[in-house]
């Protein structure tokens, strides 16, 4: 199933990426080619094959419930593009 321009537009919105009209055009073309190439694994019979969501044979990695030093507000906010007091600030969120 090749990827259409509409799909790219929808997905770009999901990913919160602004695309210029020309960019959308070009990306759609390239992605279509890439997806067709990727589609080659559809020829495989994958019935009964488990999905390798984790490649390592490890499990139950846990830490003790013990505090560790963190960052002070000043350090947390040192790269903030906009802040007010000890808060990060963003354009108003409408709920």
């Amino acid at each position: 199933m090749p990827i259409t321009k509409d799909t790219v537009e929808y997905v770009a919105h999901l990913a919160r990426i602004d695309l210029q009209a020309k960019e959308l055009e070009k990306l759609s073309r390239q992605l279509e080619e890439i997806v067709i190439f990727i589609d080659r694994f559809k020829e495989l019979d994958l019935k009964g094959v488990s999905a390798a969501s984790h490649i390592l044979p490890i499990h139950n990695v846990l830490r003790e419930d013990a505090p560790r030093p963190g960052l002070c507000a000043e350090k947390a906010l040192q790269c903030a593009p906009q802040k007010e007091g000890n808060f990060f600030a963003v354009p108003k969120v409408i709920e």
Partner: peptide, 26 residues
């Protein structure tokens, strides 16, 4: 807010980054 996200990411990411993020989101 949504505009800020989209413009920041639209301008902040290069072509290949956009291509891959969009492919992966897809």
């Amino acid at each position: 807010l949504i505009e800020m996200y989209k413009k920041t990411r639209g301008e902040g990411f290069g072509q290949e980054a956009k291509r891959r993020v969009i492919l992966g989101t897809f």
